[in-house]
Every structure is written in structure tokens, then in C-alpha cells.
Design a protein around this nucleic acid. Structure first.
Lengths: 223, 223
DNA sequence: TATAAATAATAGTATTACTATCATTAAAAG
DNA sequence: CTTTTAATGATAGTAATACTATTATTTATA
């Protein structure tokens, strides 16, 4: 399946729309690769500019700083997840099946769901797992949040919460459960891979383990 | 209740033991205040040195870098939590009550449990909520982990897992549930305070909400 | 073809994240 | 009570980071 995906990412995220030029698209494509490779802390506009043979100044015309660039990548991901969730459950009537599909998507099945994309979806996935909390765990969160830069994340959370309540209308913590399974899908995958003592992974892949764990908790909670 | 608490923090965390000198203790005390005040990203040894009227070089004699200092603070916290958990459930026989007490401690009741301490426990709490994931979400995690700097965190996780299995021996995900409730206690408090749309908080304190949520999920899962 | 917009090339600044050196002061040992 | 050692202060310096500014050149659009 080959399809072109682009989303209307919040304009406050960038100074100049990276989708609007070749250089802009290169910035996104290679920042994904570079952040994945060296981690967000070690990532700089200087290093990126060398890799794509441009200058720091050129990148600064697109993004105020690297935090905004990270937010841009995460927004793209959250929009993509919203899209995948919506299309994957479109024709499903059973809320239980819907939830199962969503959990599979969260526990990293989206790489198999994705066709050919402009961006390296596996790298984005790893960035989401390792770096996404750094987007909101910042001192200036209150001001940053005013620009609605977390809207797609909240939308995803709201969507999943609505299906949780569709499945069990009396459950009182749909949003918190929703944000918890999103975050836990990242944390448990990360722990399983890097600090396995914090998990019950015995053998097999971190993704498969996370899937089983999430299914276990979600359906025990809602049944 | 006034008591003096000190723990044998892993020697790999520091170059010179901060507990061994007046300056060392000042470094810890005021780094807690400063990280709490300006956030870990904005925190520098230079700023700290100005506040405690010493030099950057002097601080570097205690800690290799600010990441190690953060790890030191978190280790202190994890050791303290281990201590609090152990003393709080010492005389309890019912595993359910033990779990309830632990959840209360996680959902921030520890400030009421703590007497007069050398360090600002409320500031440490906020640091744990906002900064602790930055201790492990680093590219070099595999090497850092070799120094056993996450041991007290793993110990806490193991302890809670053992009580989970004491309460319900057939539950297959005790460690993952344990690490999940620890992380979720931070995430939900942070979301409730800063991105409340990601939670079901209607009114009241983030701590109280988090407590209810955690109790709900833990006992629904284990009963 | 003219005009505007985007990019490249270059330079520069303040801050960060350190390392090094040497003088001074405080603590411990003889 | 001096000697030695260890800790701290004072100072300097470097490479990298996180930007901003200026001007020339290229590319796109009118």
C-alpha cells in the first residue's frame, strides 16, 4: 500500500512551513534520522546542517529551535496515529475489537500498517518512545501549551477515551486510562529493551510483550 | 517526627561523596532547589556555583556532569521511597492494605509522611515527577546502566511487585504493573496539573485524583 | 526580464560544558 | 606544633551550543 500522507500541522510549530520546500522536507526527513541516531540531547542544528549540506541559519528560518522541531515531528506522528486509528476501526462495530486494534497500533504494529512514506516510520517510532516525553516535560509547558501544539495528542487521547466508554460506559477514568496506555506503551517498550528488570519480559520482542501487557490491563479493567 | 536519613548511594554516581563535606551537602541541597525552580534543561553548574558562592570547578570535583547529579538526587529519592515503603508496611499483614499504603506513598503522600529532612522533599517530589524520565531516556542508557545507578529504582519496583504477587499470586505482570504505577503516578500528576485534558480530573488536587485512579486500576486488575 | 523570495556564505555573540593550573586554606598525621 | 595532604578558590582557557545578523547569490514567480 503506497499512499501520500500529509497533515495540517499547527502553524505555530514552525516559522516557515517545511512541507513547502525541498529544503524543508529534507530538514524533517534527516532530523528524524539524526535524532534517532544520536538522541535528542546530542542533536544540534549544526550537525543536521552538515548532514544535509546546508547552513544552521537556513534551518533556523524554518524552526525557532530544536524543541519546536521535535514537536513538529511528534505532531506529524500524532496526526498519523489519529489517521491510522480512524481508518483501522472505520468498519468495525464491536468496541472490543476497536480497542484491540488500537492497542496493536500503540504497541508498534503501525510499522507493519504503514506503506511507503516520505519519512522513516521506524525511526519516528523510536523517537516517540525515547523522546516524546521531553516535548512536554519542560518548565515552560504552560506557555507552550497555549499554542495548541499538543492538540493532536489530546485528540488521540480523546478518541481512544471515547471508545473506552463505548465499550464500558460506566468506566470513570477513560481519558486517564487512554493517556496511560499511550505512555505505558512507550515506557514498557523502552524498559523491556533497556532496563528489562522493570518488566516481566522473559523472551521475545519488547513489542509483543507490551502488546500482551496492555491487552491484559485494558480488558481486565473494562470487563 | 524528626529523623536523619542518609543512604549508601552508589559510588559511581559521584567523583567525591557530597555527603562527606559541607560544600558537598550544599551542592545537593541547592541543586534540588535550583532544578525545581528552573528545570533540568536550564540548570547549569555555573548557575548553581553562583547561588552557593563557589566555583564551577569545585562542583565538577563532585560530579562529572549534571546528569550524574540528577541521578544522585533520584537515587536518594528512590532509597528514601524504599525506606518509607518498608517502614510503612512493616507491621501490616494484609497485602491489600500494604498495596493501598504504597499507592498513597506514590501518589505523593510522602510529603506528609516526611518529618524534617535536610532536603526539600516537596521540591524533590516535583523533580521526580518532571525530570526522572530524563535520567533513563538517554542514548547512552546501556553503558550508564552498567554502573548500577538504577538499582534503587529496580529495588523499589521489585519490592512492589512482590507485594502485588503476595496479594494475587497468579498475576503474570507484577513487575510491569509495578513500574507502570510508579511512572503513571508521575505522568498523571503532571498531566493533571499541566495538560488536564489528558486526564479525568474534574476538580480537586492532582495528587488526590492520581490516588483514586491508581487505586482503581490496581485493585480492578488484581481482584 | 524584472522582482521578490529563498538560500548560501560568512561572521559574530553569549552561554554551556567542560579541563587545567596554581595559590590558599583547612584538616590530619607525625 | 609543625608538616604533609587534601579540599577549595581564583582564574583562565577551549570547543561546542544556541542562537542573530549581514550580504551575496541563486531560484521561483509575476
Amino acid at each position: 500500500m503506497k499512499f501520500q500522507v500529509s497533515f495540517n500541522v499547527n502553524e505555530k510549530l514552525f516559522l516557515r512551513n517545511p512541507e513547502s520546500s525541498v529544503l524543508g522536507k529534507k530538514i524533517i526527513k534527516y532530523s528524524i534520522e539524526l535524532i534517532h541516531e544520536i538522541g535528542f540531547e546530542n542533536f544540534t542544528f549544526k550537525k543536521l546542517s552538515i548532514q544535509i549540506q546546508t547552513t544552521e541559519a537556513s534551518i533556523y528560518r524554518y524552526f525557532e529551535n530544536k524543541h519546536r522541531l521535535l514537536l513538529y515531528i511528534l505532531n506529524w506522528y500524532w496526526c498519523y496515529m489519529n489517521f491510522l486509528v480512524n481508518t483501522s476501526i472505520e468498519n468495525i462495530s464491536e468496541p472490543k475489537i476497536k480497542l484491540k486494534i488500537i492497542i496493536e497500533l500503540l504497541a508498534n504494529d503501525l510499522k507493519t500498517k504503514s506503506g511507503t512514506l516520505d519519512y522513516n516510520i521506524e525511526a519516528i517510532n523510536q523517537i516517540v518512545i525515547s523522546e516524546s516525553s521531553k516535548a512536554y516535560l519542560v518548565k515552560d509547558i504552560k506557555n507552550i501549551n497555549k499554542d495548541h501544539v499538543f492538540q493532536p495528542f489530546k485528540d488521540l487521547c480523546t478518541k481512544i477515551a471515547s471508545i473506552i466508554n463505548e465499550y464500558n460506559p460506566s468506566f470513570k477514568f477513560a481519558r486517564s486510562l487512554s493517556s496511560t496506555i499511550i505512555e505505558t506503551s512507550h515506557t514498557q517498550q523502552y524498559f523491556a529493551k533497556n532496563l528489562p528488570k522493570l518488566t516481566d519480559l522473559q523472551s521475545g520482542k519488547p513489542e509483543d510483550f507490551t502488546l500482551k501487557f496492555l491487552e491484559n490491563i485494558v480488558f481486565k479493567l473494562l470487563d
